[in-house]
Design a protein around this nucleic acid. Structure first.
Lengths: 355, 355
DNA sequence: TCGAAAATAGTGATCGTTCACCATTGCAGG
DNA sequence: CCTGCAATGGTGAACGATCACTATTTTCGA
């Protein structure tokens, strides 16, 4: 074990004690006026310097530069907010199910940072109503300029937004599947099904995710549309909730004669549940039934059989969603990252249809 | 597909347009003075009312109550921050690997909310150095009163904290395994190993997580200590990085004669990798080798065989970590949630030792 | 009924920045 | 040497709350 660690924790606690006792004598942060005095200019000149260094004599500029770094000056953003009436803060509303939000969060927060915003993250366990309520509460404080909701909100929430000041972008509500709706782009599902058809599959089963999510709705819609278009058989499009249990139950409750030769699950967790149910029924995957997932969950790559899935560039997805929020707020149009955001990865869980 | 959704998106965009054009004529938020005027009292009286309603005549109180709700008044927190020199904001530094942070984040943000703080979340991809740098940058802005680091930081980071104003709590650095060090409590690992010994296992293998994490160090230490204490054989304690690949490689590279009868993995993903490597070598789990994980990953419950793991109450863990930060800052001692935070769940991947 | 203490209310300064406006300087052209 | 215009710099008032005071009213025992 690493000895340094104990030392570290102690130091942190000392740090705290120091602060407690020194609170009164704590060295205050330098202000714009002190910088001005040291540089021999007025505070207004320093204020100009802070926002844009244009329009200042090179000499003045150098003197302020020196003063700033000597005092280690950092502008007080609270005071700035107060005067400008802009907080530069955004909020992200996070779902607590469905997928690991870490990478998506990373993409979103980085994009916000680059756009000069700081981000408050709120994750809400509970139903759509609770989440919406919490969102309205946050909007009501006037502390944030915009909210990015990565989880479904109640219909009609806009009517309760106070003062029309806070902008809410909810990519998951865009069923048009473009731009900020990338989250709900179900086209890889079509690719999966067409691939399975090439393998000779004709009879499918879909286990959907929580249909409050646009992505779940889009996948289900794409499934039904593809069944129709290619004239396939469907053993059903079962409503689920992104859980392994929903996948297990959907397969488990199917009568023998109704079994499909391919299961298209809404995500990898559901797929894992479905595979287990198939195995428990004594069926071989992919020998007798093929299964596909979505999200490229790391564990599912090590499943026996390794799961065919859709690799999703969650980081870019998060970034794009945030960029669209920033665009709504500031009008600035930042360029989204290039490249495809979703890609089918064929693995062992899919194969030729059993006859 | 749900028709409501399109409507919703359009409304959101309308909301935005409205704001753009109305920016000038936007109704300003009411201030404390307007409330005072409407209630027929001084602004100071309203200020008192806002912080504690004690010490006001019932009559006055009722009048202010009425004025507040009539104007729909909400205090301007920026102005308050400015005067009190307290921002009421905390930051959480998130790792982007190792585990799904959603529930932990939820626990932490809820606790902060209850304590009257708002939370900024920052997730940093990259090495410890990058993360530490970013943390110091955040501390330097003076915008946050404290930082909760759920990912490892570079040793000696405290020396670079500016002004000693921002408190940093890094539970992961506490190797004492108590209080805020619950994250690193490895005692369930001992329980796992003792259970395996009862099953007749004598020869073990440990695949560790990223040793920059205290939890990984604690588990490895507990493993080695238990081997020693019970006089068992160890096929090694391989250093890993929380990835499935590290689990797969660790087992894959072992010579036949060095194989253990039980693999204790640092987490479920590593365990899944290890199981796959065992299967690929033609070994049966748990028939020939038992495997344990950690985190109770949902997918792993549907693995064939369902993985024996450690259920972790991530929400409470996150809450506790946040409570300790709040305690450091405000001295307030909020009660942590009761109950055990980690619990061994025996499933199919463990069984009697093969002889 | 009076006086002192306690309870309640009011006044003006203050936090650190930006904004609106005015003052000064430099420079070219008459 | 003066005028006019740009370029730069300075002054004081916001922003909306809290704090440290002071002022007024109420309470209550003697």
């Amino acid at each position: 074990m690493n000895d340094h660690s104990c030392v570290k924790m102690k130091t942190a606690i000392i740090e705290r004690k120091k602060r407690m006792t020194e609170r009164s004598t704590a060295t205050r942060r330098p202000t714009i006026k002190e910088v001005a005095r040291l540089a021999g200019v007025s505070h207004q000149t320093v204020s100009r310097y802070l926002r844009s260094r244009n329009g200042l004599k090179p000499d003045t500029l150098a003197r302020i530069d020196a003063a700033v770094s000597e005092l280690n000056y950092r502008p007080n953003l609270v005071a700035r907010s107060m005067r400008t009436r802009r907080t530069g803060r955004l909020a992200i509303l996070l779902p607590t199910v469905a997928f690991n939000p870490a990478r998506m969060l990373h993409g979103a927060t980085e994009a916000a940072h680059e756009g000069g915003f700081s981000v408050e993250v709120v994750s809400v366990i509970g139903d759509t109503g609770t989440r919406t309520e919490r969102m309205l509460e946050i909007a009501g404080t006037g502390q944030v300029e915009g909210i990015l909701a990565l989880a479904p909100l109640s219909p009609g929430f806009e009517d309760h937004l106070p003062h029309g000041e806070t902008i809410v972008v909810a990519p998951d509500f865009d069923d048009e599947m473009r731009g900020i709706g990338e989250l709900a782009d179900a086209s890889p599902l079509v690719e999966l099904m067409e691939g399975l058809v090439e393998f000779g599959h004709r009879r499918f089963l879909h286990v959907a995710g929580n249909l409050q999510f646009a992505s779940a709705r889009a996948r289900k819609a794409a499934y039904l549309e593809t069944i129709e278009r290619l004239g396939l058989e469907s053993a059903g499009a079962v409503d689920g909730d992104w859980s392994g249990k929903s996948g297990y139950d959907a397969v488990h409750s199917l009568p023998d004669e109704a079994l499909p030769t391919a299961v298209v699950a809404a995500n990898d967790v559901v797929a894992a549940g479905a595979i287990r149910a198939l195995i428990d029924r004594g069926l071989d995957v992919p020998g007798q039934v093929s299964v596909t997932g979505w999200d490229n969950n790391e564990v599912c790559q090590y499943l026996p059989p390794a799961l065919t899935s859709v690799e999703v560039d969650l980081e870019s997805l998060g970034r794009n969603a945030m960029l669209s929020l920033i665009k709504s707020i500031s009008g600035r149009d930042l360029e989204p990252p290039p490249g495809p955001l979703q890609r089918v990865v064929w693995r062992e869980s899919t194969g030729p249809a059993h006859r």
